[in-house]
Amino acid sequence: MTLHLHATVADRGYDVALDVADGETVALLGPNGAGKSTTLDLVAGLLRPDSGAVHLDDRELSGDRAWVAPHDRRVALLAQEPLLFPHLSVLDNVAFGPRSAGARRAVSRETARHWLAEVGAGDLADRSPARLSGGQGQRVAVARALAADPRLLLLDEPMAALDVAVAPALRQTLRRVLADRSVVVVTHDALDALLLADRVVVLEDGRVAEEGPAAEVLARPRSAFAARIAGLDMLRGRWDGGVRTADGSLVHGLVTGPEPEPGDPVVAVFRPAAVAVYREPPGGSPRNAFAVEVTDLEPLGDQVRVRAGDLAADVTTYAAAELDLAPGTWVTFSVKASEVAVYRT
């Protein structure tokens, strides 16, 4: 099943083209309001595009001439919360899709048992949804979505509401059952993108900011959001023997990929752990140095992440105390050129 979407929604400033190949899982990344939910709504049939169209295989779901109602699209939704129908047993929840498609009760229950077993929730069949844990509920919701035999699955942050302790097990289950399916998964989690998705599409301000294989996008992000998700610092600029940023400073690094031409848009990307923090500018050093104002400090294991606008530096708790850091403090972030990757965007 292939999805092709190219649509605009004027009052949300949305203009996105998105393709999902047969059997492909695409992760949608992006800050809040970037258009992820709009994309899901457009595909699920909860929102009409102002222009453009949504095709599933050769069938036009939304477009100038066509409109297929949500229940006729065979596009199943899985949300943050399981949203199991509280008045039905777990088994009847999962049998809901087959029943709606016209299957007899016994047949649809058989299908339901199969999918419950598939997600490792076979023993929950006779429970009431009220008596399930969050992880169990989401497992059942996955089984329910799959039992409806959808041609496309839409997952809206399926693990966001779960305890960190139960998320990995569900992620493994999803990885298994979604393997050969066409799926769009909205996530904020780099791990989800890496483990579940073949491809990543990053949305920013209603536009596609970048897309590509998950591992590549996360290793060499070209958009600010992908860099943040990957936990990397990014500086943007034009090629001038280094990365010439908007404020005029020059960032040196190792060019990866094709050699940029002068004036090409390029980014400098580095790990926060590679950044050293000083109270006074280190004189005459070959390092890249940026004077920044600390905006936030957050504990990160035995380290402290020092945020300064879009940049971050990881220092030891001891160093943070030594430097007497606090929001508002002016410091110098320093990073060796050998730690900086520079590439064209």
């Binding site: 229940h71 699209r73 065979r74 949300a79 949203l83 809901f96 899709g97 709606s100 409806a148």
Partner: peptide, 14 residues
């Protein structure tokens, strides 16, 4: 309407 949206996505007619 969240339950209704889910139900429709599972193929249930209005």
């Amino acid at each position: 309407q969240r339950y209704e949206v889910v139900a429709a996505s599972l193929g249930a007619s209005p």
